[in-house]
Structures are given as C-alpha cells and as structure tokens.
Amino acid sequence: MGPAERRAARGTPVPGIGADLSGGPASGALALLAAGLPGMPGTVLGHGTGAGERLLAVTFNDLAGGSGGARDDDEMSRAGALAANPRLHHVVVTGAESTLPYVDLDGPLTDEPGPSLVSAARHRARLAAGSADHFTGYGAKQVLDAHPARLADLLMDRKRRHLVRPVAALAKADGSVMVPARVYAAARRLARTPYRAGLESLAERLLRRRLDDDGPGGAADASLAALTWGRPGPAARWLTGEALAEVSVRLQASTRRSEVGPGQRPGDFRARAALARHAADLRVLEQAAEIRSQRLHAPFLDNQVVRACRALPEALRVQPGARASILRSVLE
C-alpha cells in the first residue's frame, strides 16, 4: 500500500493537487490540464516518494452498485488509458456496500437537501483518496451540453437542418423510426408555446396528477419530456393531492407576476434553470461529503467558464459528441 492508499484509509487527503478520472471527457480533460500545470503539480516537495512529479488521479469503480454495462466498462478502459500518462498517479477506489445509495443518511447537516445526499457515501470514499486540492468535472454536462429544449430555439431561428444529427442519434438509440417525427413535433409545439401558457399547462398537469406520462425512460423519452417549459420533478410523486393542488395554485400565481418577456427562449430558460439547480447541489455535495483539509474545485462551474460556454453556438452544442469535441479542442 502506497502513501496515497494509506492516507485514503485514514480519510486524509494527500498534499498537493489531484483530480477525478471517471473516464468521461470532462474529468479526463481536467486531469490532463492539471497534470500539465507548471511546477509539476503532484504532491508537494517533502511529502512521500516522487514528490512534485505526478498528479493524483482518482477513479471510483462502483462494483457494489451492480450497474455495470458496456458504457461503464468503456469509461473504465478510457480512465486506465489516460492514467498511463507518466504525469499521473492512478488510484482506483472500489465501491463496497458501504458506498451504496441511501446507505448513510446521517452524515453532516447541510444548508438544504439535494440529490447528492443520496450518494454522499460514495463521494466521501472517492474524495478521501484524493488530494488537498482536488478537481472534479462536476457541472460539465450542464455547462457544455445543450439542453434538449434547445431544439425549439433552433426552430425559432429557422435552423431546421441542425436538428438532423441529434434527432438521428436519438432514433438510433431508441431503435424506432417514429422518433424523428415525435421529437420534431414536440420541438415545434414548444417553439410556439409562450412561457405563461407553458407554466399554466404544468399547473394543470400537477392539479390532475398527471406525473407519469413520460414514457418508459429511454433517451428519446427523456428528450421528449424535456421539450416543455417545465415538468414535475421526482418529488412530485411523493406529494399528496392537496399539496400538489397548492403547488398548482402558486405556480399559476407566479405566471401572472413573472417578468419573463415574450422573447424568452425555452431552451435558454431550461438550460439556465438546470445549471442553477446543479450548481446549488454542488454546495450540498461539498457539505455532505466534506473531507477535512481538502478543497474541492469544480472549474466547469467557474463564472468565466460558464460565460465562455454560453458563447458557443447552439447549433454546435446540440450535435452528438459535442462535449468531447469541444474539450478535445481545448486540450489541443
């Protein structure tokens, strides 16, 4: 067991700079960029062997979750290939029963609840194997990828040809020839629906408890469900009819005093809301999975990075593989 593994066993981060390495394009790009920082960013001089030479890259291998699948295998393979870089020291944290979702809900108190509370144990296990300054790709999807509602924005700009590749990718993933027509119709309907009418429709949906009409859950169904001004969240299924009615009334009242103008674009609106929710959950994650003497960095949620990504053309961001392509250009 090396110094990094011994410190992880004690729950103490290694001095220096580290990064997550899940095998996805975001974490891989961050790890390579951090490994190329001047001054050789690994552990600080005087701490352990090879000090100041390599960046500590941490991969969480969730064997206990039983998720598996070709995608997970591919990401693990990519993580291993990237870790072969001589500037990286690779540590694999294997998930056990103690890191399963919902296994540890009596952790530190947070300012508010959030999705990361469910998986706080696995976050702590991964971060405990990291460095004092640890980079994570948290937020890359929300910042770089286009929200499915952006398809409606493209229709509003009369850029129909840019819908061809993303819709074809959805059809291939779903295996149905009906997907292109369904997605185009939903995007067209959203492009023609004003903000106020969209939220009034959502309020009516909550009032009538129509919460489970999003399809079986494939990629196409998820995109179709997202092609609206708003939709019920997962917590709506836990609420009583009386609570849903109260939410519906408040939602209708909010549309009357809303400052959203007639020129508001649905894709831009939904993307901003998704990013805001994800950024807020990062604070919950930091509190729930806090490791003493460790600073967690999420560069993709930095204001300058967010502004730079918002300047990217929508027609580029909706294309399949856009995130990997953009990050590849950054590395080059």
Score class of each variant (00 low, 15 high):
P262F: 09
L117D: 01
R328G: 14
S293T: 07
L56G: 09
D212I: 06
M76Q: 06
A186G: 05
R192N: 13
D214P: 04
P299G: 00
H89A: 11
S223V: 06
R161C: 00
A235V: 13
Q287P: 02
P13V: 06
V183M: 08
A4G: 10
R160I: 03
L63D: 11
H278P: 05
G114E: 12
L312R: 10
R150M: 11
R250S: 03
S119H: 08
D62C: 06
S27D: 07
V14Q: 10
V118T: 01
L199Y: 15
T255G: 04
H162V: 13
Q264M: 15
V91P: 02
R158V: 02
A235L: 09
T228W: 08
E200D: 15
G218V: 01
H147C: 06
D212K: 06
H147V: 04
A9S: 14
T99P: 00
G80A: 14
R283C: 07
V14W: 11
A222L: 15
T228A: 15
H162E: 15
A31I: 10
A220Y: 12
A311S: 14
V318F: 10
M1D: 05
L151V: 13
R182T: 13
G65P: 01
P299Q: 00
A243G: 06
L316Q: 14
L227H: 01
V305W: 12
A8G: 15
A84F: 00
A8Y: 13
S325E: 02
R257L: 14
L45M: 04
S77R: 11
H47N: 11
A288V: 02
A279H: 09
A187W: 10
G80C: 02
R189D: 15
P3E: 11
A129G: 11
R182D: 15
S22G: 02
L30E: 01
M156A: 08
M1G: 12
G11D: 05
L144R: 00
A57I: 05
Y195I: 05
N85V: 08
A120T: 12
A125Q: 04
G66D: 13
L301R: 00
A83I: 07
T59P: 04
T136F: 09
L211G: 10
R295H: 10
A186K: 07
R231C: 01
R237C: 09
P234H: 03
L151G: 09
G230W: 04
H162K: 12
G42F: 13
R165D: 07
L55G: 07
R7Q: 05
R210F: 00
G215D: 01
A235H: 13
D133P: 00
R328Q: 15
R122D: 08
G42W: 08
A288Y: 06
L155N: 00
E332K: 11
E204W: 01
H278S: 14
V103Q: 04
A26L: 08
C309P: 12
A191I: 12
L327Q: 02
P13R: 07
A274T: 08
W229T: 05
A280S: 03
A235Y: 13
D111G: 15
V330S: 04
G137A: 10
A57E: 03
V284W: 09
L33T: 12
E259P: 03
E112T: 14
S27Q: 05
A84T: 09
T255A: 15
P180R: 03
G139Q: 10
R54M: 06
L155Y: 00
A84P: 02
Y102P: 01
R231T: 01
L37S: 06
G130V: 01
E200W: 14
S176T: 07
